[in-house]
Structures are given as C-alpha cells and as structure tokens.
Nucleic acid binder design. Structure first.
Length: 515
RNA sequence: GGGGCCGUGGUGUAGCCCGGUUAACACGCCGGCCUGUCAAGCCGGAGAUCGCGGGUUCAAGUCCCGUCGGCCCCGCCA
C-alpha cells in the first residue's frame, strides 16, 4: 500500500488501536497474496489447544506472546555471545555425528551408509569434544549447541534441546562459579532488567537434601524439613521404628496455621501424593490449645511430643507432616510435598528469581539395576582431592568437584572440574566397573589425550531453553522452542518421525523387524 | 512400562456424575442493513451426531470395555 499518512478527522479516531489516531488513504493497493481464515484466533484473547498449535505452529508463532518469547530468546543468544566474546572465549562447533557413549541417556542413532552395521550417535552433549579442545589449547571455549537425548519428555525437557556449553583451562571450581554467576546475572540484567543478588547462595548437596529434600530446591520460600528421628528413638509406632532401625529417618515439615484447615481428607490426599514417591504414609501432628495431637501420639509418649513441639517451634494451629522411611524416600517425598505446598499455599512469589549453587555432589552412586557404581554427574568429573583415598575403601562416599545452578527449583546448569590426569580418570573408570579393555575401547582417545599434558580444566553447561523459559515466565519449554515435539516425541506439523523408502534402508544395509 | 486429566461445529467451552424430543453459549465464518470502515451496532444464515471401535440399553455425547491422540506426573533423563 502506498499513501500519505495523515491525522484522522476528529471523531473518527479509534482508541482501541495503537495507530488509531492516524490513517493512510490508499493511493495504490496491491494484494501480494491472499490468506485463508486462520484455524484458530491469533490475537491472544483465548487459549488454544496445544495439539492444534503444534500442527499449525507457523500460525501459532504469529501470536504476540510467541513473538515476544522468541525476541527474548534472540536477545539471550546475543547477550551470551557478547559476554563470552568479551571474556576471551571462542565459539567452536563440535560434531553432531559422533560416537555412541555407553553411559548416560539413550542415544539417537544415525546409520552410517559406508559402514553397514555401524552407527553415529547424535551428541547428548559435546562433553568429550570440549575437553579435547582444552587439550588442544583453546583455553576458553563456549558453544550454543543442540543436544539429543532419547528419553521421555517432560514440561521442561525435550528430546532435542539447546545448551550453552562452556569449558575453561587452568581453573578451579571457584573460577567457574564466579564467572558463570556473572554470565547469569548479565543475562537477567540485560534481557529482563532484573538484578540478581550476588554472590549466589551456595548449598552443599547434603544440606540441600537435608533441608529441602531435593538437590534442586525452590528457594523462593522458607519451609524446611526437620529431623525428629532422635525424638522417636523409642517409639512403638512401627513405621517410624522400622525406618530408624534399618538406617532410615523420620522427618517432617511444618505447615504453619493449617492444623484446622487441613482436614482428614486433605491429609489423605497429601498421603496419596507422597505415596507416589515411595512413602508408605504421612503422619499429621496438629498443635491445638490442648497440646500436640496426632494419631500416633500414644506410640510416642509425652516427652517426644514435647520435643517435637520445641524442635519445630509449633504454635497453636500449626500442622506438622511427618514421614518415616529410608533416607532417600523421606527426602524425595517430603521435598516434593514441600514444593506442592509452597505453591498451593501461595508461599511462592512467582516474580522472584532465586538462583542457588548446589555443590559437593557425590561422585558415584550404586545402581541396583546395573549392579555397579555409576557416575552421578558423568564419568569425567574429578573427585574432591581429599576424597581420592576412598576409591578402594568407600567409593560411594567420595564427593565430586561438581556443581549445579538451580533457579526456582529448575536445574538450569551443571558442570564440574574434570579429571585431567590419566591416573585419576583410570581410577574412575575402574570404580565404574569398566575393564581396562572396555575403557580403552570406549574412551581410548580420551585416555590417550590425557597423556599429552592436559591442563586442569572444568566447565559447565546451561539448559538454554530452561533459561529462556525463566526469562519469559513460560511454564513449558515448548513455549520457547520454535518447533517442539510432543510428549511422544513427534512433530505434529511435519509428521516426523516417519517411515522411509525401502531404497534408503537398503542403501544403509538395514532391514526392519517391526513388531 | 505405569498413574492421572482431557478429546463435543473453524476456535474455546457447557452438556456427561442423575442416559430420553430440533446438542447449548461465546468468538469466528457467510449474507444483508448502516456508507468513515477498523476490536462498533442491528438483522438473518450456514456449520458439530459429540476422537475412533465395540458393548450395555427400547434409547448413549451421557454408562462399560478397548483403542488413538494431546497434556501433567512416576520410571527414565551420566
């Protein structure tokens, strides 16, 4: 359209339109293309089913909130790249077609035409490549990179997702945390105009689990788990007694002022909730004018009850919800309960951004399924120096030089200082139950590289989509990914994945056995 | 692999729990009026057989079973 912009005549202005005070009389108008009526409204007035949105994603993306999300995503890319550039990092691309690694998530595989029966894997992360870049002397590396994990999807997880991947040489944990804190603060400042309190608080893994029940606590509200195991030491209440006798715990959380409001029914509902995380029950203690009341009061005795009142500083009307079980179940179920109650009771101020570093993770944990130790972070993570002596005696007690950045209960980033000497790396592989042959077969190139004067190094990777999710306030990662997949990892728009032509299979030397 | 919620005109919902005449409402769409239109108003209209399959019943959108799909969660995610 061409024409002269002019003021609308008095009385014809439209206050509903941003441009309602002016108009352009058309001197010339040309239709470039015609448009069908959109299959759903694009003006934000109304929610639209996600299935439809994903099928017509190109229309969905026209909507103002989507346009806004992708502007924010774009700004975030720019801020990240500028930050790393200014701090002497260089961006290096690593292969998308690489080797399948035995540890970790399920790989997406790509058949290799020239080597029938052999496969590439899409990277779960550029972990090994970035370490090798440190060996290569590219001391400060970063990359905004796609990663692929063939695991089931969640609201904050997609089969393919984007990481800000970082690695640095000649650093210790402190160097990484301080600089990455600056990165995150810069992102929130420049993209969202939010000043984050620094330094970010730090929590050791053990503390996080003890106080919040989870290793990714939402620290926006105060509500902590407390231990009442010692107070129940002589209880005849079997669930508590059995838990303690077998090395478990009895812990609880105080729910302020809810002794009355949380009815029997409500507690039953919460019990069902914690059962989902392995707890067998949930025991309420209600603080009334007549003292602490509980179905299990008679199994505890007045002394224990008094101890509980004091320990949890229970005032009239307060409720305490307790669970006795294995340490893992107690932590997980109370931690999840804490999160649920925080939201339901309106304790969470959703405008807050509360980052926290979680450090001192265990290096290894025993996998019942695999009957061996597996890496909590990944097999290249360095143990704490003072724990190295535990390799033979108590490997599960070793702590790692690993750290996570948690924001509002989301694990936004994670990293570690790596093993830069071959001996320690070999010991980790040993502890993981790899035979020397297996280690050489799978990671020979890494072990060999470590023989060429590898500098101490470490790094971190941030979930870019999760960060943008926080920056936009979206409640699903799909809102900040242009063409996301469904929960069943399909693309409703293109119909991927789809069968391929038999000719293609033949070229690849593949035959299907679909059941 | 498992648990839960949802699936009704183009869109979003109501109806389903307590089966029963032409499946309701809003927006959108089409036509007309209004000739300063727009995110205004008035009048009229088209459009769903209720995801799919089976069952129960005289009768099912409504009950039961199965199945497909979307979402949330557990498992899984070094």
């Amino acid at each position: 359209m061409t024409g002269q912009v002019r003021r609308r005549p008095p009385g014809t202005e439209n206050v509903h339109l941003k441009t309602g005070e002016v108009e352009v009389p058309a001197a010339e108008a040309l239709i470039l293309n015609e448009a069908r009526t959109p299959v759903f409204p694009l003006d934000e007035e109304r929610p639209v089913g996600e299935e439809l949105r994903l099928t017509y994603r190109y229309l969905d993306l026209r909507r103002p909130s989507m346009q806004r999300n992708f502007r924010i995503r774009h700004q975030t890319y720019q801020v990240v790249r500028a930050f790393f550039d200014q701090h002497g990092f260089i961006e290096v691309e690593t292969p998308a077609l690489t080797r399948s690694t035995p540890e970790g998530a399920r790989d997406y595989l790509v058949p290799a035409r020239l080597y029938p029966g052999h496969f590439f894997a899409l990277p779960q992360s550029p972990q090994l490549f970035k370490q090798l870049l440190m060996v290569a002397g590219l001391d400060r590396y970063f990359q905004i990179v796609k990663c692929f994990r063939d695991e089931d999807v969640r609201a904050d997880r997609q089969a393919e997702f984007t990481q800000i991947d970082v690695e640095m040489s000649f650093v210790d944990r402190e160097d990484v945390l301080v600089l990455m804190e600056e990165l995150v603060a810069t992102i929130f400042h420049k993209v969202k105009g939010v000043e984050l309190n620094r330094p970010f608080p730090r929590l050791k893994y053990d503390e996080a689990v003890a106080r919040y029940g989870l290793d990714k606590p939402d620290t926006r509200f105060e509500m902590f788990l407390g231990d009442l195991g010692d107070l129940c030491a002589r209880t005849t209440f079997r669930p508590f007694g059995d838990a303690l006798a077998s090395g478990g715990q009895v812990k609880g959380i105080k729910v302020q002022g809810k002794a009355e409001a949380f009815s029997r029914k409500k507690v039953d509902d919460l019990t069902e909730f914690v059962k989902g995380f392995g707890a067998k029950g949930l025991t309420p203690f209600r603080m009334t004018a007549e003292g602490l009341q509980s179905p299990v009061a008679k199994f505890l005795g007045p002394e224990a009850l008094e101890g509980i009142v004091r320990r949890f500083e229970l005032g009239a009307g307060d409720l305490l919800l307790a669970i006795g079980d294995s340490r893992a179940v107690v932590a997980e179920s109370l931690g999840r309960l804490r999160g649920k109650l925080g939201f339901e009771l309106g304790l969470v101020d959703e405008t807050l951004i509360h980052p926290v570093w979680v450090t001192d993770f265990p290096l290894l944990e025993y996998s019942e399924e695999e009957k061996r130790h597996v890496a909590v972070h990944h097999p290249f993570t360095a143990p704490m120096d003072e724990d190295v002596s535990l390799f033979e005696s108590a490997p599960e007690k070793m702590r790692a030089k690993a750290y996570d950045l948690v924001i509002n209960g989301h694990e936004v980033g994670g990293g570690s200082i790596r093993n830069h000497d071959r001996e320690t790396q070999q010991k980790v592989f040993d502890a993981l139950g790899f035979s020397p042959e297996q280690a050489r077969e799978r990671f020979g190139f890494l072990l060999e590289a470590l023989e060429f004067g590898t500098p101490p190094h470490g790094g971190i990777a941030f979930g870019f989509d999760r960060l943008v999710m926080l920056l936009t306030g979206a409640d699903s990662i799909r809102e900040v990914i242009a063409f996301p997949k469904t929960q069943r990892a399909q693309c409703l728009m293109t119909g991927a994945p789809a069968p391929v032509d038999p000719v293609q299979l033949k070229e690849l030397g593949l035959r299907l056995h679909v059941s």
